[in-house]
């Protein structure tokens, strides 16, 4: 997992690139973006209706067909118990996407609460919340996740909570920054001068403007969360086998890597491809949002 918190990956705010540069950048991204969208679509479809893409049973064993290399019958090979790797990757998408989306949603909810409290709450509240975020931030993601898994036992819910909580501080900082900058901008003061109530100003002006850059961050966060959750599974702290899940498949494939490379390479590729695709789309959105009409 790249251990990096998603937030710093993209510089939110700051001067936008000139329109010409952006346009060129976007043009150069196009084929990549299309490809990335196809990958994401594939996995979303896999998560919703896996049987459409892979009609076999991901749990069914066939001891006579164990550790088969990729072939026409098993395009991505089979594992030790003769289960079809392609089928398991497709059926694993639901679990992995659920964890990614769930963790990001949780992180966002926590971060929005903290960020807005901090950004709007005045000096004392800001100080307290900032300290709290600082403390959370001083726990590396994996450390916090280890603690959670040890307490609650390994499960998808635990993974969502662990990864979600540990990535919240990064988002919270960013939201606070956005809130502060939006609050200090002229049009909020203007709205206040026009006699709009404080809650209304927050709802109509501060919230949407502070949240806009986050669309991108959320996209990236989903990819990162999946990578993190798979890392937990890799350490043996993920969902219980034999449920197909990408990280758990990687963990199981590790022992066979010198004999059956397909068990390690393909689930890893699924994670990388998916994370890469959402990142590509995220960056593309970023260009559009910052350089386009949204501004």
């Amino acid at each position: 997992m790249s251990a990096i918190q998603p937030s710093p990956a993209l510089p939110v705010g700051g001067p936008a690139p000139s329109a010409a540069v952006t346009a060129a950048w976007v043009r150069s991204l196009r084929p990549g973006v299309i490809l990335a969208s196809l990958v994401v679509l594939f996995f979303v479809l896999a998560a919703i209706a896996p049987a459409l893409l892979a009609p076999r049973d991901p749990l069914a064993i066939d001891l006579a067909a164990s550790l088969r290399a990729p072939s026409a019958g098993h395009v991505l090979g089979t594992d030790q118990s003769g289960r079809d790797v392609y089928t398991r990757i497709v059926h694993g998408a639901r679990q992995s996407l659920l964890i990614g989306v769930g963790a990001t949603a949780l992180a966002m909810a926590v971060a929005i609460a903290l960020g807005f409290l901090s950004g709007l709450g005045g000096r004392l509240v800001d100080g307290l919340v900032s300290r709290f975020v600082e403390v959370l931030f001083s726990f590396p993601v994996l450390m916090l996740s280890l603690l959670f898994v040890t307490v609650f036992g390994p499960s998808a819910t635990t993974e969502i909570v662990a990864v979600g909580i540990s990535s919240a501080p990064g988002y919270a900082r960013m939201i606070r920054g956005q809130v502060l900058s939006v609050r200090g901008s002229g049009y909020v003061e203007a709205a206040r001068a026009l006699g709009h109530s404080y809650p209304r100003v927050i709802r109509r002006h501060v919230f949407p403007n502070a949240m806009r850059p986050l669309v991108v961050v959320v996209t990236l966060g989903v990819g990162q969360s999946i990578v993190w959750a798979a890392g937990l599974a890799f350490l043996g702290l993920g969902v219980a086998p034999p449920a197909p899940e990408w990280g758990a498949m990687l963990d199981a494939g590790r022992n066979y890597v010198t004999h059956a490379w397909w068990l390690e390479i393909f689930p890893g590729l699924a994670i990388v491809l998916f994370a890469l695709s959402v990142t590509t789309i995220g960056r593309y959105l970023q260009q559009r949002l910052e350089g386009g009409p949204a501004r």
Partner: peptide, 28 residues
């Protein structure tokens, strides 16, 4: 070990054929 876990998964699928629902619970 991991091979032991593979065996338990094999057993789970075999027992399913006669109608046992084997719930595999890994303990840390």
């Amino acid at each position: 070990t991991s091979e032991g876990v593979t065996l338990l998964q094999n057993i789970q699928q075999q027992a399913k054929q006669v109608g046992f629902h084997v719930d595999l619970v890994p303990a840390t």
